[in-house]
């Protein structure tokens, strides 16, 4: 397994380089333009000059190589400088990957948005998984019981009703209809400048993440619980379950040790695929609650054709995707020792 992991890691580097190049081509071909959202009062000749100042008149491969240099060489050097104080080369005037819209280093923008993204999207993912696994297991064990039917109903409604609807519905209920002084009143606008320092500020933080986390957790739980249930059902009817029961194992250990472990493969896949999306943010939910996390950063970048920003963000997602799929593959081997990759 170690061998496999190392081999895969080596293979990752050319894969990621290729992915970064393809992403760059897509972004370059896309017909939206960094001057597209400016007011029409800025005349076309000035727009042409703005494009030139962004370096857009250089050929595509030059711009790609420039990004590679800034991202793979300058940014790590800069991080070393900031974290350890090591200075290699020209530390003062090193060109970092800079967003075209804000003219500031992309890495700093991403760091600024990590807290709210982790609070809201990360929390909702954890909550979603914690709800989904028990529901999936019980639903499968008691197939067609009222619990299963109710679980199915909630999961399907949760999945088929989009977050743009549930989000607004919650705001109308908890922010608009609820009186302002009620303890159930929740803020509809997330305050990113809020810092948790004591108990009351922590309570405020919980209140302001409550609605977006509810919306996202429902959506995540719906999906994961369905896969959990289906996979459990498959395994419950297998011969080894009968054997285990015949051997007189307790029902609890049959269910939670044997069946659950063997049912985890599709669930692990789904969860591993979902984690990069946590960092990708939840674009619609972030917009509804004004969370302004990574998802909002990405969508603003795409709308404004901010190529360095979108390229960097997307590439970081790609790294996460490749890594977590590798983690999933390793987990398969741990869950089912028969799976061999060599």
């Amino acid at each position: 397994m170690l061998n496999f992991t190392l081999r895969r890691l080596m293979f990752t580097i050319p894969t990621l380089l290729l992915i970064s190049f393809i992403i760059f081509i897509v972004l370059d071909l896309a017909p939206n333009d960094p001057t597209g959202n400016l007011p029409l009062t800025i005349p076309p000749e000035v727009r042409a000059k703005i494009r030139a100042s962004l370096g857009l008149d250089a050929p595509m491969y030059i711009r790609y190589l420039l990004w590679c240099q800034q991202f793979f060489i300058n940014e790590p050097l800069n991080l070393m400088n900031e974290w350890f104080g090591w200075c290699i080369g020209d530390c003062e005037n090193r060109l970092r990957v800079s967003s075209w819209a804000t003219r500031s280093p992309v890495v700093d923008l991403i760091a600024e948005r990590m807290p709210q993204t982790l609070w809201v999207v990360g929390m909702s993912y954890v909550v979603g998984i914690m709800i989904a696994l028990p529901i999936g297991v019980i639903s499968a064990y008691k197939q067609y019981s009222w619990f299963d039917q109710a679980g199915t109903f909630v999961a399907m409604v949760g999945f088929s009703v989009p977050t743009f609807f549930t989000g607004v519905l919650l705001i109308v209920i908890f922010s608009v209809w609820m009186p302002n002084d009620s303890i159930f009143w929740l803020p509809s606008i997330y305050d990113t400048t809020h810092e948790v320092t004591d108990w009351s500020s922590f309570v405020f933080q919980i209140r302001q993440i409550a609605m977006p986390v509810m919306v996202l957790a429902l959506y995540n739980a719906a999906q994961i619980s369905r896969f959990m249930r289906a996979s459990m059902l498959d395994n419950l009817s297998q011969d080894y379950v009968r054997t285990a029961r015949a051997k007189g194992l307790r029902e609890k250990s049959v269910l939670l040790v044997h069946v659950l472990r063997n049912s985890m493969i599709p669930v692990v896949t789904v969860i591993a695929l979902g984690i990069p999306q946590v960092f990708g943010g939840a674009i619609i939910t972030e917009q509804i609650f004004k969370v302004n996390g990574l998802g909002q950063l990405l969508i603003i970048g795409i709308e404004g054709a901010d190529i360095p920003l979108v390229q960097t963000l997307t590439f970081l997602f790609a790294v996460l995707i490749v890594m977590f799929n590798l983690v999933a593959d390793v987990l398969y081997g741990l869950l089912d020792p028969r799976i061999r990759y060599d």
Partner: peptide
């Protein structure tokens, strides 16, 4: 992995 990583909107 490549398809998962592609930014959907620009695509």
């Amino acid at each position: 992995d490549l398809f998962l990583a592609l930014p959907i909107l620009p695509l």
